[in-house]
Amino acid sequence: MIIKSIYALFATLGFGVIFNIKGKNLIFASIGGFITWFLYLFSLEISSSNLIALFTASVAAGLYSEVFARILKAPVTIFSICSIIPLVPGGAMYYTMLESIQGNINKFLSTGLDALSSAGAIAAGILLASSITKLILVFNSKKRISSSR
């Protein structure tokens, strides 16, 4: 599991270079890919459900991105995009298109639904993490405003 996560770290590092991320932001974005893939593999062993593992890993990616964006004073998208790169169902999308071209409608629909549900689980996890962060920030700002009066 650790070796596969190290591969994800290097893959994320490569995407970070393509996205023109510089310095310590590149290092922390790559670490986000490592953590996300490790949590995905760990969740997959525990739950044996791909969607639950993707959702769990993407929530962790979203929380990681929000925290380190504030610590490093950088945009959240730098970390969130790089953190979810290992999770993106590229193979499922490729096989969906391949089955479409070959005319296998049943396999096309099956792999397409799999790719769509995987992407939806990732999006829902990032959305949940972002919403939790926004709620915490709003709650803390209202708390500071009411205590200063």
Rank of each mutant, 00 (worst) to 15 (best):
M1R: 09
K4W: 02
Y7N: 15
Y7A: 12
Y7C: 15
Y7V: 14
L9T: 13
L9H: 14
A11C: 14
A11V: 14
T12W: 11
T12S: 14
L13R: 09
G14C: 15
F15V: 11
G16S: 13
V17P: 07
I21P: 01
I21T: 11
K22W: 04
K22N: 10
K22V: 11
G23H: 09
K24A: 03
L26F: 11
L26M: 12
L26S: 05
L26V: 12
F28E: 04
I31E: 07
G33V: 09
G33A: 08
G33E: 01
F34D: 07
I35Q: 04
I35S: 02
I35T: 09
W37I: 02
Y40G: 04
L41K: 13
F42A: 09
E45W: 00
S47F: 11
L51E: 10
L51P: 00
F55P: 02
T56W: 01
A57Q: 03
V59D: 02
G62Q: 04
L63I: 12
L63Q: 02
L63G: 10
E66K: 09
V67G: 00
V67W: 05
R70Y: 03
I71V: 12
K73L: 00
P75D: 08
T77F: 00
T77A: 08
I81S: 05
I81L: 13
I81H: 04
S83T: 05
P86R: 05
V88Y: 06
V88L: 15
P89Q: 12
G90T: 04
G91Q: 04
Y94M: 11
Y94G: 13
Y95T: 11
T96D: 09
E99T: 10
I101T: 05
I101S: 07
G103F: 08
K107P: 02
F108E: 07
F108L: 14
F108I: 02
F108A: 14
T111C: 00
G112L: 06
G112I: 08
S117C: 06
S117N: 08
S118C: 13
A121L: 04
A123I: 02
I126L: 15
L127D: 01
L128Q: 01
L128R: 01
A129R: 08
T133C: 07
K134V: 11
L135Y: 12
I136F: 11
I136D: 03
V138N: 14
F139H: 13
N140E: 14
S146E: 09
S146D: 10
S147V: 06
S148I: 10
R149Q: 13
